[in-house]
Write a protein that binds this DNA or RNA. Structure first.
Length: 494
RNA sequence: CGGGGCGUAGCGCAGCUCGGUAGCGCGCCUGCUUUGGGAGCAGGAGGUCGUGGGUUCGAAUCCCGCCGCCCCGACCA
C-alpha cells in the first residue's frame, strides 16, 4: 500500500514529516536531532550547493576548509559570540575508549588538556587563521567560503529546519574598509535572494534584523525571510556585517597604505540544509513534495507502459530514444524500466518525490508517435511528439519553474497585510502571514509583542518590496503610541 | 527543562486491563496471472517483545530502576 501523507489542512507539522519520509529526503537517525540524507535529499542539496557555489565564485570568492574542532579557548575571545553559542556546543574531552568489564568506557587517562568544541560556526578558527594570513592592505580583501557540517546542540529539533548537525556553507571575508565590508554583506544577501527566487522558485523579503535577533558578535545581520504555507515565516539565509569585533578578538590587523596598523573589517554569511525545509513548505502539496526543475535531482521520469502480449520492444525503443534525446539536451532524466512496479505505482511515487515532469509512453503512443507529458505542479497532461521531446520538456520545465514561483508569490501577497491598531495586528497574526506594522524601534515594544502574540520582527525590510505599501513612511507605533520611522515585518516564525 | 506519547519482524501497529510460550497490515523471497493511475492468487522467510532487576511453576503482559526516540512548549539557523 501507499505511503500515507497527512493532508496539510489536518496537521501541517505531520504533513511535513510525512512528506519527508515518503519522498525519501531524510530520516531520523539513532542520535537525537541528527539525520540521514538518502540520495533524494542529498542530491537536492548537491544541486543547491552547485548553484550557490557558482554564484559565490562569480562574485570573487574561493573555497577553503577549516577544521571541525575548535579549542575551547577560541570561543571565549568574543564576548557576545560566547554568549550566543556556549549553551549549545558539543564538546570533546577525551580521545580514547577502553574495554572494562566487557563494555567500552571512556578512558579516564585519555583526557584532553584543553577540551575541543565541535564547531557551531567557524568565525573563531577562521579569524585565528586570518590574523596570521593578513599583514598588509595588499592581502585584502580576503574572500573565502567553506562547505561544511556544523553542530548545535538544540533543545528541540526538526528535520532540515533545525537539526543538531547540519550541512551549510559559511562565507568569511576580510576587508580594509567598513564600506567595502558592508557592500559585501549586502551583495551576498542579494546572491541569496536571487538564488531563492531563481533556483528555488521561492520569493523572499530582504531586510535587516533587529538587535535582539542579530547574530552573536555581529554589528548588523541582514536576512532573507520566506513565508511558509501554514503562515509561519522562515529565516532562509543570513549575511552578517561583523564590524571589527572578530578582528579585535583575534588581533587581526593590517598595515594600511600610510603604514599604520588597522583592524580588519569582517563579514560572514550562510545558508544551510534548512533551505530544503523551506523548499518543501513553499511548494509541497497533499500528494508530496514538488521540486523546482532547476534543483530537482530528477527532472523527468519516463514510465514505459508495457503489455504482456504487446510490442514491448517498440515501447522500450521509444522510451530509450526520448531518454537519449533528453540526456543530450542536458536534462536530468530517468527511464524507469523496473518491471516489479506497475505504471500507476510509478506515477504515484514520482508525484510523492516531486519530479516536475513525467512522460508516459505505451503502445498507443508508439502508434501515434507521441508521449503523455504530465506536469507535477498543475497535474496537466498533454500528448506531445516524441520527435520533438526535448523542446517540449524544456518548455514544460520552464513553465513549472515559473509556475511554482508565481504561485508562491501570489500566496505570499495574499498573506501579507498591514495593521494600524494593535487589535487588528493580533487578529491578523492569528490568521498567519506577514504583518506590516509600525514599530517605535525599541526592544521593549518588540519584546512585548513577542510575549503577547508570539510574533517576532522578522526584519526591517529594504524599501520597495511591498506593492502599495511604503514601509519607509513614518507613523505611530500602535503598541506604544510612540513615533515610528516605518513599518517592519512581523510574523510567527519557525 | 516542563507537558504528552511511544519502544513487540525492515516499516506501521495489535496483544498488556484479566500472566500460559507472539499476531496483523505493508514491505521482502518464490511461482503463476497481470501492467494507460498505488494489481491478484498461492506458497514462504523473518522477532533474545528497548534494557537491568524483582514477583511467579511460568512475564511482551504485574512491580521497581535505567536508557532511548517522537510530538507540543520555553531557547535557537
Amino acid at each position: 500500500m501507499a505511503e500515507q501523507i497527512t493532508p496539510r489542512a489536518d496537521d501541517y507539522g505531520q504533513w511535513y514529516q510525512d512528506v519527508i519520509r515518503a519522498a525519501k529526503l531524510a530520516e531520523t537517525s539513532p542520535v537525537r536531532g541528527s539525520m540521514v540524507m538518502p540520495p533524494n535529499g542529498y542530491e537536492l542539496w548537491e544541486n543547491m550547493r552547485d548553484g550557490l557555489d557558482g554564484m559565490f565564485k562569480a562574485t570573487g570568492h574561493r573555497n577553503a576548509y577549516f577544521p571541525l574542532f575548535i579549542p575551547k579557548s577560541f570561543l571565549e575571545k568574543e564576548a557576545e559570540h560566547v554568549e550566543g553559542f556556549a549553551k549549545e556546543c558539543a564538546v570533546v574531552t577525551h580521545y580514547r575508549l577502553k574495554e572494562e568489564g566487557g563494555e567500552l568506557i571512556v578512558d579516564p587517562d585519555a583526557e584532553l588538556d584543553e577540551p575541543l568544541v565541535v564547531r557551531p560556526t567557524s568565525e573563531t578558527i577562521i579569524w585565528d587563521t586570518y590574523s596570521r594570513w593578513i599583514q598588509s592592505w595588499r592581502d585584502l580583501p580576503l574572500k573565502l567560503n567553506q562547505w561544511a557540517n556544523v553542530v548545535r546542540w538544540e533543545m528541540r529539533t526538526r528535520l532540515f529546519l533545525r537539526t543538531a548537525e547540519f550541512l551549510w556553507q559559511e562565507g568569511h571575508t576580510a576587508h580594509a574598509t567598513e564600506q567595502e565590508a558592508v557592500d559585501e554583506t549586502r551583495q551576498m544577501l542579494d546572491v541569496y535572494a536571487d538564488f531563492a527566487q531563481d533556483w528555488m522558485a521561492m520569493p523572499v523579503i530582504r531586510g535587516v534584523k533587529t538587535a535582539s535577533e542579530r547574530f552573536p558578535g555581529a554589528v548588523d545581520t541582514y536576512c532573507i525571510e520566506a513565508l511558509m504555507q501554514d503562515g509561519k515565516a522562515l529565516q532562509a539565509g543570513t549575511s552578517h556585517f561583523l564590524g571589527q569585533n572578530f578582528a579585535r578578538a583575534f588581533d587581526c590587523t593590517f598595515q594600511n597604505q600610510d603604514n599604520e596598523p588597522e583592524y580588519v573589517w569582517a563579514t560572514s554569511w550562510g545558508v544551510s540544509t534548512r533551505l530544503i525545509g523551506a523548499l518543501i513548505m513553499t511548494h509541497g502539496d497533499d500528494a508530496g513534495v514538488i521540486m523546482p526543475p532547476r534543483l530537482a535531482p530528477v527532472q523527468v521520469a519516463i514510465v514505459p507502459i508495457t503489455r504482456k502480449n504487446g510490442d514491448n520492444e517498440a515501447v522500450m525503443d521509444a522510451a530509450r530514444q526520448m531518454r537519449d534525446d533528453l540526456v543530450a539536451d542536458g536534462v536530468r532524466v530517468v527511464l524507469d524500466d523496473r518491471d516489479q512496479y506497475r505504471p500507476g505505482w510509478k506515477f504515484a511515487q514520482y508525484e510523492v518525490e516531486g519530479v516536475p515532469v513525467r512522460l508516459a509512453v505505451g503502445p498507443r503512443d508508439v502508434e501515434n508517435g507521441t508521449a503523455e507529458m504530465a506536469r507535477r505542479d498543475s497535474g496537466d497532461k498533454e500528448a506531445v511528439s516524441q520527435r520533438e521531446i526535448a523542446a517540449h520538456v524544456r518548455r514544460a520545465l520552464h513553465e513549472v519553474q515559473q509556475g511554482l514561483y508565481d504561485r508562491a508569490l501570489a500566496f505570499r501577497q495574499q498573506h501579507t497585510h498591514t495593521a494600524d491598531t494593535y487589535d487588528a495586528f493580533k487578529a491578523q497574526i492569528e490568521e498567519g502571514g506577514f504583518v506590516l506594522m509600525h514599530w517605535d524601534g525599541t526592544a521593549e515594544t518588540e519584546a512585548q509583542v513577542k510575549e503577547e502574540t508570539k510574533a517576532t520582527i522578522r526584519c526591517v525590510p529594504f524599501p520597495g518590496q511591498f506593492s502599495g505599501v511604503d514601509t519607509e513612511a513614518p507613523g505611530t507605533d500602535p503598541v506604544s503610541g510612540a513615533p515610528s520611522a516605518g513599518r517592519v515585518v512581523f510574523a510567527r516564525a519557525y
